[in-house]
Amino acid sequence: MTTPDPHTRTAKATSATDAEFTEFYRASVKPLVAFLILQGATLAEAADVAQETMTKAYQRWETLDHPHAWTRRVASREFIRQRVNQPETPTDPLPHSPLLRTGDIEGWELTQDLVRALATLTPRQRQVMAWMLTGHTPAEIAQELGLTDGAVRQQVYLARRTISTRLEGRP
Rank of each mutant, 00 (worst) to 15 (best):
D5W: 03
R9I: 12
K12S: 08
T14P: 00
A19R: 14
Y25D: 03
R26N: 15
A27F: 01
K30H: 13
P31K: 11
F35W: 05
L36T: 02
L36M: 05
I37P: 03
I37V: 12
L38Q: 13
L43M: 13
A44Y: 06
A46C: 05
A50R: 02
M54A: 03
T55L: 14
R60P: 01
W61L: 13
W61C: 11
E62M: 06
P67C: 02
T71G: 06
T71R: 03
T71D: 04
R72P: 01
R77M: 08
E78Y: 08
E78R: 12
R81I: 01
R81S: 14
N85K: 07
P87A: 15
P90M: 13
P93M: 05
P95N: 09
S97W: 07
S97C: 07
P98A: 02
L100N: 09
W108K: 05
Q112W: 12
A119S: 12
T120L: 12
T122C: 06
R126W: 06
V128P: 00
M129Q: 08
L133K: 05
T134W: 04
G135C: 01
P138I: 02
L145G: 00
T148N: 05
D149G: 05
D149S: 06
A151H: 07
R153Q: 08
Q154I: 06
Y157C: 11
Y157S: 13
R160T: 10
T165N: 14
P171R: 13
